[in-house]
């Protein structure tokens, strides 16, 4: 089977400083892959480069059989590749319902589309604040809304940047539930995480990045069991 997202030789720079040095990995349909690495390793840059939010070069950048290298951001999103940024970027002047409306795209064949009602079942605390504005929500609630907003575009895959960062510990568990629920709906997820315990709880596969280069790729379980490898790549 062809991978859903096929990345090979991905390079990106900020000005003259090169940040990514030819990353290659694949995301299979319905699978959760965790990009693990320390602060500054290049995880966020990888996600932004894939959706064209920053300029990047790649030998191969293919999503659902479409080359997406050089495509504008909105076209990539229309193809069904969602992006949830690290800083959530909720539209703070808009209500929860309006935020969801911005993310809405047409249904995709063969799948029942996400609706606000379905999303409120997935994220019950959003259901209690439908008319609340983004700037009146906690960090965790904004994170939920950011994910829900991207799901409104009925994506086949989501790039999820640091979902567990900066939210209350009690919500981390809920976030893990949400990731599993999305997976069970058939959405593939590429997750960037510093918190490898969170990654371990939800991911099938681990990709460890260090200074813009891939250090390890393999099943998450193997990575968790191999303490020497963890110490070598993450220092934990």
């Amino acid at each position: 089977m062809n991978p859903l997202l096929d990345v090979s030789g991905l390079k990106a720079s900020y000005g003259r400083a090169q940040v990514l040095f030819g990353l290659s990995f694949q995301l299979e349909p319905g699978e959760v892959t965790a990009l693990i690495g320390r602060n500054g390793a290049g995880k966020t840059t990888t996600l932004k480069a894939i959706v064209s939010l920053i300029p990047a070069q790649a030998d191969r950048l293919v999503f659902k059989g479409h080359p997406i290298s050089g495509l504008s951001t909105y076209r990539i999103a229309r193809l069904g590749l969602g992006y949830v940024p690290e800083d959530r970027r909720i539209f703070t002047d808009l209500t929860v319902e309006e935020n969801l409306e911005v993310g809405r795209q047409g249904a995709r064949p063969g799948r029942s589309p996400w609706t606000p009602e379905r999303l409120f079942r997935l994220f019950p605390n959003l259901a209690t604040m439908k008319r609340r504005r983004g700037n009146e929500m906690s960090g965790g609630e904004q994170q939920m809304l950011s994910i829900a907003r991207t799901l409104m575009g009925n994506p086949d895959a989501i790039l999820l940047d640091e979902p567990s960062e900066g939210i209350a510990p009690v919500l981390v568990q809920a976030m893990a539930e949400a990731v599993r629920a999305m997976k069970s709906e058939g959405v593939a997820i590429l997750l960037s995480e510093q918190n490898w315990a969170f990654a371990a709880a939800v991911a099938d596969k681990a990709c460890v990045i260090e200074r813009g280069e891939m250090r390890y790729q393999g099943p998450m379980a193997d990575f968790m069991n191999d303490e020497a490898l963890r110490r070598q790549t993450l220092g934990v």
């Binding site: 504008s72 999103a77 309006e98 935020n99």
Partner: peptide
């Protein structure tokens, strides 16, 4: 209107609107 909601969203964050699949 949807157009209006998109306009207000774009007033705040153009890039995010694009990342959600809206043709700026």
């Amino acid at each position: 209107t949807r157009f209006g909601i998109l306009v207000r969203a774009a007033t705040q964050d153009r890039d995010m609107v694009a990342a959600l699949g809206v043709n700026q």
